[in-house]
């Protein structure tokens, strides 16, 4: 067995992989938060709860309707996205003229309601979600065994993050989004239906969170608290990256996952807090965040 810096190779690479996977979830969640914040000026506290909902919907699809993992990957984000659409239309849109903290408070309440309802229905212990047959097993990479499903998650997450980036930075729809983030009234005065754009943005960000939830279901057990354990860390990720840049959110998310993984190897006691420590350092050195614009 080979070692690196006195650490057995498999342990190091194993933790690094875990770190990249966590980082993939940080990236997908902070991406959605950043896009929603840009358009709605709301910190969507319910993001973790909707991530959890994505995992639960895929679990329900499987156990109640016999719909498997791959269709769920599309269906669950669609279902939760429609839920987000209804939320924006009926509730969140009432907040745009108020102080921004009300958006935080409202979505915090929303998160409590969603999590509480799922806890009532399914308890807190969590339920397993089987890895689909096609992605069972592991591949020998020479220096480590890569469980196929984990490799799949990393790959898909990177593709989805880059696709989101491309849609926002490279397409016509993305140009409208960016413009509306800068000056929504003017974009509306050009004839763009900005309220609809806002609704779609919220639903899109939510769908992204739900998609992450489906990916997470076979890795973590499906349980009502899986979102809230993520979301606090994701807020730190968002503070570190700043919410001004899409690519910034992606890079920060993955990077912090890796840092967390390495900490687990070299100083496990600090692995839960290392992201927050990074946040402290970033706050001291560059208060706007690594990729932030003035807010």
């Amino acid at each position: 067995m080979f070692t690196i810096l006195g650490i057995p190779g498999p342990l190091l690479f194993g933790q690094l992989l875990l770190g990249v996977i966590n980082g993939a979830f940080y990236a997908m969640l902070s991406l959605g938060l950043a896009v929603i914040f840009g358009m709605l000026n709301i910190i969507n506290f319910a993001h973790g709860a909707l991530f959890m909902m994505g995992a639960f919907v895929s679990w329900m699809l499987l156990n109640y309707l016999g719909i498997g993992y791959f269709p769920s990957l599309i269906l669950s984000p669609l279902i939760v996205g429609v839920f987000g659409l209804v939320l924006e239309k009926t509730i969140i849109s009432r907040l745009y003229k108020l102080d921004h903290v009300y958006g935080l408070l409202l979505t915090f309440g929303l998160a409590l309601v969603i999590e509480g309802l799922f806890r009532n229905a399914y308890g807190s212990s969590g339920m397993p979600y089987r890895i689909p047959d096609a992605l069972q097993g592991a591949t020998n990479l020479g220096f480590m065994f890569l469980p196929n499903y984990r490799g799949w998650v990393v790959l898909v997450a990177i593709v989805v993050c880059l696709a989101t980036w491309a849609i926002i930075e490279k397409t016509f729809l993305g140009a409208r989004l960016r413009a509306a983030t800068e000056n929504a009234p003017l974009v509306q005065a050009f004839g763009v239906d900005v309220p609809r754009l806002i609704t779609l943005t919220y639903a899109g960000g939510i769908a992204l969170a739900a998609f992450a939830g489906v990916l997470a279901a076979p890795i973590y057990s499906v349980n009502p608290n899986m979102g809230s354990s993520f979301i606090n860390t994701v807020f730190a990720v968002v503070v570190i990256g700043g919410m001004g840049s899409i690519m910034g959110s992606i890079v920060t998310g993955f990077g912090l996952g890796v840092i967390e993984g390495l900490t687990k190897v070299f100083y496990p006691q600090a692995s839960a807090t290392v992201i927050f420590l990074v946040m402290v350092i970033v706050l001291l050195a560059m208060p706007r965040g690594l990729f932030g614009k003035a807010v």
Partner: peptide, 21 residues
Amino acid sequence: FGAWVTVTQGVIFMVCVLAFR
């Protein structure tokens, strides 16, 4: 009533923000 506490808290939050600031 278990998790209904959480649900109730959440509902109060939302009602306060929407109608009872």
